[in-house]
Design a protein around this nucleic acid. Structure first.
Lengths: 207, 207
DNA sequence: CGGCCTCTTGAACATTCTCAAATTCGGTGG
DNA sequence: CCACCGAATTTGAGAATGTTCAAGAGGCCG
């Protein structure tokens, strides 16, 4: 396992805790393993029904703020496998001692259901709309406007139930239409970091 | 609203309670309304993000045993709309007084996540496999073997992200290959009640 | 520089969609 | 019981979208 512990993250002032980072594409945990729940602080995570990292078992998606692995509170083991879609940071959950267990659990439950509905929506309609939907889910505000860290093409394909080639065509087309602009980020593959122009995206969606 | 109250159900000996039945196709509740959670005792329910009954907003599916509307425990109002896919029976949840709230909630959470993964799987792959997947989810044991109460073709189409015509073709093909045999049920449309032959279905899947 | 992985692109092909029409089912009224 | 109506389903043929297979280009890291 290549998880690296850091006392504190770069941008958000997170208190020093048992926080862990994963590089893009690496497994976080596997179905059946013992472990606890996590909150995704940054990045995005895919959940799979099968033990393996990829293939046909895509089940759900978690983005910054989402909580994963709550089934361990019931079973003591993970029901799904998790893998990093992008560089991501996780902290154990529940955090601290303050949160009333029931309330926090209900909140997580509600977010999970909403996210599941998002994922379902990502798998219907035209190819361009699906990819665009994922872009909207993953785009995040920053000082320099909307930043986007995309997963690999194959992961996008698994999420949207498209083929990697189709995803590539759609993204390249969005880029040509001006909705996405490649941005170089140290340590991130050149094809996965973009600045998002929502006006451009809307135009692209209309086409 | 055409909900009819019954003191007790036919087959399962459910204790007399505020149990309610809905006919196929009727709305159960709408997003934004106040209300409580329910356990689906029999039949199947669709959840939609949009307020309306149908169209593009399909979000999730609930079958017998599943719990819906838990978000009301947090928000006091429904986050999704629910409609009956088949004739269905619901009882308020949590039931009784015995169940430890936290534990019961965790169980519902786990089931919901699993079901969401099922739904995601229903929206990927070939048309025949998607419909077959839904058939497997909805088929239920009975004295006379596996019985199946299907939703309307349009609902199946919404769930699987196919078109109603495609669903019709797949089901007719399964029927011709012997995987499904129409069974007349009083009060159920002739095209929606089947006996399932899993061997036949497996054969059909292979074709 | 070279190897490896990921992404892009092209062209033929398959599946599914679309549109349109017939058919069946369930219920109603004569 | 039969004719009729509206809703749901079935079926057909052509068009569109996405897939498949194959090659090549680009990026990352030693």
């Amino acid at each position: 396992m290549n998880l690296s512990f850091k006392p504190a993250a770069a941008h958000p002032p997170v208190p020093a805790r048992a926080q862990a980072c994963w590089e893009e594409g690496t497994p976080i945990y596997r179905a059946g393993e013992a472990g606890g729940a996590w909150r995704v602080t940054a990045g995005s995570v895919r959940l799979d029904t099968t033990a393996g990292t990829g293939e046909g078992g895509f089940a759900s998606l978690a983005v910054a703020g989402d909580i994963i692995g709550t089934e361990t509170l019931l079973f003591g083991a993970y029901a799904f496998s998790a893998a990093a879609l992008t560089h991501c940071v996780l902290v154990p959950w529940p955090e601290g001692v303050a949160a009333p267990a029931g309330q926090a659990l209900l909140e997580s439950y509600a977010v999970t259901q909403r996210r599941a509905a998002d994922v379902v929506a990502l798998r219907g309609g035209q190819a361009a709309d699906r990819v665009l939907g994922l872009v909207r889910l993953l785009a995040r505000e920053s000082a320099a406007g909307l930043q986007l860290a995309l997963p690999r093409r194959q992961d996008i394909a698994d999420i949207t139930s498209l083929r990697l080639e189709t995803v590539s065509r759609v993204l390249k087309s969005l880029e040509r239409l001006g909705g996405l602009r490649p941005v170089r980020q140290p340590g991130v593959h050149a094809t996965r970091s973009f600045a998002v122009d929502f006006a451009g995206l809307a135009g692209a969606a209309a086409v």
